[in-house]
Simulated assay, not measured.
Amino acid sequence: MLERRNLPDLKLLQTFECAARHRNFTRAGEELALTQSAVSRQIRELEAQLGKPLFERVRGRVVPTPAGEVLRRRAAPGSARPPSPPPARPAWPWPAAARRHGHRWRRAGPRASP
């Protein structure tokens, strides 16, 4: 497991994810507005940081290695769960706070005639 201070740059992970999805550095570059050589250079930098090859280069396309496949699954959009929203709370913690602030609180039901 990587420690927080050793995590790769988010830009490199984004480039990796795009290249893994397209299985082609040129198409990844087109999507990211980078040249093919810039994508290749960023992938090499990421591989150097992680110390593992992430792609096998095969006749004009790239195939993720087992380590690359693991990283691809973890780097895919939506793979991280968003934090759950806080529980809904009422506007007033009725009835005690309402009384402290001068509000009159009545239970729901038919209105009493004035």
Rank of each mutant, 00 (worst) to 15 (best):
V63W: 00
C18P: 00
R106I: 10
A80M: 09
R111G: 14
L10G: 08
Q14E: 13
H101G: 10
R21M: 02
T26L: 10
R44L: 02
A98H: 04
V62P: 00
G78E: 04
M1I: 08
E3L: 11
T35Y: 00
H22Y: 14
R41L: 14
R107N: 09
E3C: 07
P77K: 06
F16A: 06
R104D: 12
A19V: 13
S113C: 09
A112S: 12
L34D: 04
R57S: 10
T15Y: 00
P95Y: 08
E47Q: 13
G51N: 07
P8H: 07
A88L: 07
L46P: 05
A67K: 01
S40L: 01
R21Q: 09
P110K: 11
L7H: 12
N24F: 06
P82A: 04
R99C: 03
R74P: 00
E47N: 09
R99E: 14
R111I: 12
R57T: 13
S40I: 01
R104V: 14
L7D: 03
L32I: 00
R73S: 05
K11G: 05
A33D: 08
P53K: 15
P110N: 07
A48G: 09
R81W: 02
A112V: 13
A33W: 00
K52P: 01
R23E: 13
R41E: 11
V63L: 11
L50V: 11
P90Y: 01
F55K: 05
T15R: 00
D9T: 10
R73P: 00
R73G: 11
P110I: 09
Q49R: 15
N24M: 08
S79Q: 12
W105A: 15
R21K: 14
A91C: 08
G78K: 01
S113G: 12
R107P: 12
R61Y: 10
A91V: 15
P90H: 05
P93S: 09
E30A: 07
A91R: 10
A80F: 06
Q14V: 11
A19N: 04
Q49K: 15
R21N: 08
P87Y: 00
S40K: 13
P114W: 04
R57N: 09
R5F: 10
G51A: 08
L32E: 02
L2H: 10
M1D: 11
L7N: 04
L71E: 01
E56M: 11
G109L: 05
E3S: 15
R59N: 08
W105S: 14
P66Y: 05
R72N: 03
P87C: 01
I43M: 02
R44V: 03
L12H: 14
V70Y: 01
R81L: 11
L34V: 06
K11C: 02
W105D: 08
I43T: 02
R4T: 14
L13R: 06
Q14D: 08
R61Q: 15
A19E: 05
A28P: 07
W94A: 06
A19R: 00
A88C: 04
R44F: 01
